[in-house]
Nucleic acid binder design. Sequence first.
RNA 1: GCCCCUGUGGCGGAAUUGGUAGACGCGCCUGACUCAAAAUCAGGUUCCGCAAGGAGUGCUGGUUCGAGUCCGGCCAGGGGCACCA
Length: 893
Amino acid sequence: MTIDRYNAREAEPRWQRIWDERGIFATRNDPPSPAASADKPAPAGRSIGEGRKYYVLEMFPYPSGRIHMGHVRNYTMGDVVARAKRAMGFSVLHPMGWDAFGMPAENAAMASKSHPKTWTYDNIAAMKKQLQSMGLSLDWAREIATCDPGYYKHQQKMFLDFLKAGLVERKQSKVNWDPVDQTVLANEQVIDGRGWRSGAPVEQRELTQWFFKISDYAEELLEALDTLERWPEKVRVMQKNWIGRSEGLLVRFMLDPKTTPGKESEVEIFTTRPDTLFGARFLAISPDHPLAQAAAARDSSLAAFIAECKRMGTSQAEIDTAEKLGYDTGMKAVHPFDEGWKLPVYVANFILMEYGTGAIFGCPAHDQRDLDFVNKYNLGNTPVVCPPGQDPKTFTITDIAYDGDGRMINSRFLDGMSIEQAKEEVARRLEKETRGNRPVAQRQVNYRLRDWGISRQRYWGCPIPIIHCEKCGVVPVPAEDLPVTLPEDVEFDRPGNPLDRHPTWKHVACPQCSGAARRETDTMDTFVDSSWYFARFTDPWQANAPTDRKAVDRWLPVDQYIGGIEHAILHLLYSRFFTRAMKKTGHIGLDEPFAGLFTQGMVVHETYRKADGNYVTPAEVTIESAGDARRGRLNATGEPVEIGAIEKMSKSKRNTVDPDDIIREYGADTARWFMLSDSPPDRDVIWTEEGVQGAWRFVQRLWRIVGEISQLDAPASRPAGFGAPALAVRKAAHGALAKVTEDVDKLRFNRCIAHIYELANALNDAIGNVSTPQALTPDFAFALREAADILVQLFHPMMPHLAEECWAALGHKDLVAQQAWPRLEPDLLVEDSITLPVQVNGKKRADVTVPRDAGKSEIETAVLSLDAVKRALEGKPPKKVIIVPQRIVNVVA
RNA sequence: GCCCCUGUGGCGGAAUUGGUAGACGCGCCUGACUCAAAAUCAGGUUCCGCAAGGAGUGCUGGUUCGAGUCCGGCCAGGGGCACCA
């Protein structure tokens, strides 16, 4: 018998059409009533999920124009989870949409005179087609695009709700300015001093901006990290560091009136090391500190110094290399424990106004930066913490500060205490002391996390629904006037914000006084759009509110969220904040949006270079291998190319592989299979031509195995008993079933694939053993058919089209996509006899086969009678025999 | 500088969480089919050794009957954060 090759190009669109026509991936918001499900009783295997909800979500794409291999990997993983959970009896929500606002649309508009809207929607259409060719089990009825007024209208409403709830603030502040994109960036969007998108060195500017008060939630966002048990530890640590909690003490230092010509009388500092107060040598304040500003008004050279500081601090690169500089104001601060102890007050370029109070006290002996500073200005140092084992009398600091543990020295009443005791003692004493009705010191927790600046001076974003009126000030757009839609007649012939220079759009009447007023022309950071789309998916049809409470309560949290690690801080932190803000304003009923998070690795590829140093694409190169050596040649000319480092697929290195090409050549199933095989999903996967071909070979191999089995003459009903060959097949099938079930649940797709290979190999061997028709007993044929069914169901989540084709070949009239997961027969996993490895002194010497329920003495007797064991013992009795049931035997000589 | 992760065959990786190291795949080698090649199929493939046997999970020391797995020290690679007081 011969079996034709599997034709993916023909089969895949056919099955996609059938799934689509039958609408099998559409998810209803109202769970089917018991009556409706009663006429179709759930198969036994369905019991795992029992109809409970399961929300699988992959981070939605930016519609850049074409999907890339990273999308293929991401969405394949999500689809495996969605299909497996559906089979396991869960009610699965698996939607898709578009993160459709953003700069590239404007850049394209500038470059090609297209409109951002048409550019974006054309890209969405193209990419949707690509995603559909992957055979993803998505509910396209819920598709959303964030640039749709039907979406951003609700975002504007929430902005107003947040404003009313005190979660939004307009303030002037130093901001990160991206000179290329001509817009402001949030702290999170500055990477190594450069804009996250443009890569341009970021400058500092003073602007009035809208902020979401994410810092109000700093403590909560930090604490709740511990509850996110199904998040990668790495991401939790990154968020923890980003929030950057530190406990310390605010201390008010009096200024010596004799040295202070102005009316300022004190300066408040923040410190996390109040224990080192007796090691103080100076105070330093930020150039932006009011005291510095006031002093500069009297001292022109100080003013010049401050101006110098400001001029330097424009780019991160300069900040990193800038020398630590200080300027002695001449003012003296009084030590809080000693009125006679005067400390010089410096303005220093490394003190940030944004953190703490913008002022510090310097303890050079135990802080490297302070030490560098005093060594430069000859202020000296006093060690106050003595490391264990050091003699306090001889312990000195020269140019390496000591920040370790130890006992307090040179610190009067603190001497002999531990650091912790000293911190507590200083806080206790200074809290009690008051000056002008206020305590001299108070405990404070500080966070590195800053408020989220959301104003962007761009066109292609969600307009901020605010009107500025000369008389009434900042006036929210009335809810009934929403959405504030983007004007379509805009020009991109010049840099800057087209909204701002639009002839009419911004000129409106004030909703309060009806006088002439001006619209806010800034739009929202696109990270706002992606901070709540997961909630909108639960009821995207809801026209009157961002969410329907019944729908969000039913579907949220997202049970499994899958995306790239690059969003570990930005998107994931913003979404966590937004969910809390939506809860406060009544749009949602929970704090944490994503119960389970998985961060997948990148798709990487070798790079190829011609002799002239230019990169060439994998499609242009053929790799020849001889023995261990691999060589590349250019297809067109045959000239050799150099095989370079394996790197993330990128246009600049030209090492990308187009998913369309792969799907056309091998089919989506092959691409999906390869994406999941070999590498663990959280690590990078190396895309290789050989690997894809291996996956493609396996597609054909499966088709052949299933085809051959489908042609066997198998009885329709289950035989009364199974002979040894049949039993072996059944054990292989159920063993694979048990392992795949567990591994798919833990997202260990590479292991699932290994188990499926093993089962396929076992079935292939079993078929090969049927040399004559007589050898094919009815029980064996039945077992093979049963195993083939299981095999097809196991690989269905990874290769759904091939699975449907095989399922039909096996004679089934329904769809494998709607099948219940196979029911496991646990008895088949238990062996009657087991083979235990036998070690002598920890070295494996033999195997012993004993009945499954053999007692320890029985095993010991069997082991000691083995020739290999006798030889190793050299006739002497063993000291000890360790028997680990079902595991191993170790004889200690 | 601080924090985190990872080191296993030629390569990607597996190892029931302290119990037979190298599952599965790629590559390579041998054979079958073929006039030939491709495709396909069968077998082999950690290293040393003809073999018996020995060595072996970055290095090093320890705990244990037993360590890839746990602990201490080091080395290498990767990632995150960083004038944060």
